[in-house]
């Protein structure tokens, strides 16, 4: 066990865990941030996507010891009032069916828009390919990302 000081959603948190513990389980079991989901544990489905700095990262294979000083953002910290352009667009397109994978999809989409403000269909498909939606809401996700891109551009 070891103590780790983490910067999560703009707040300092301290956990005392095995250094190999993936951030996914630190978030879910130790910090009660359960918006980040367990889907596969091997970085194949994207349900556990968080931001490490500005980069979309699979938290199920990121050991807590690998985080260092980098800021972590989870779905709970993406916006204060649930009004991030990606969240708004998701509601506008009523994307979710079961909803389980959507936090991961949203975090991945938000990271994509940070690096590419106006992605093409092909760029969205390529960036989002690691996120499985078993309900297969892929077309609405794509449409919502385009809407979010517009909302972001209009805002800035």
């Amino acid at each position: 066990m070891a103590i780790f000081n983490l910067n999560i959603n703009g707040k300092q948190s301290q956990v005392d865990v095995d250094p190999a513990t993936p951030m996914l389980w630190v978030l879910r079991d130790h910090l009660n941030l359960v918006g980040t989901k367990y889907g596969c544990g091997v970085a194949q489905c994207g349900a556990c996507t968080i931001h490490l700095g500005n980069v979309a990262t699979r938290s199920c294979m990121l050991p807590v010891s690998g985080v260092g000083n980098q800021a972590i953002t989870t779905i709970e910290g993406l916006s204060e009032k649930g009004d991030h352009p990606v969240q708004k667009a998701w509601l506008e397109h009523d994307v979710a069916q079961c909803g389980y994978c959507q936090a991961g999809q949203i975090m991945n989409a938000a990271a994509l828009l940070k690096s590419n403000a106006s992605p093409s269909d092909a760029e969205i498909e390529s960036a989002m390919n690691g996120n499985i939606c078993r309900c297969a809401t892929y077309l609405r996700i794509k449409a919502a990302i385009h809407t979010a891109a517009k909302l972001t551009t209009t805002k800035s």
Binding site: G35, I75, E76, W90, L91, A96, G99, Q102, A103
Partner: peptide, 8 residues
């Protein structure tokens, strides 16, 4: 449940 889903 839309808002609850997109806010985790």
């Amino acid at each position: 449940e839309g808002v609850n889903i997109v806010t985790g």
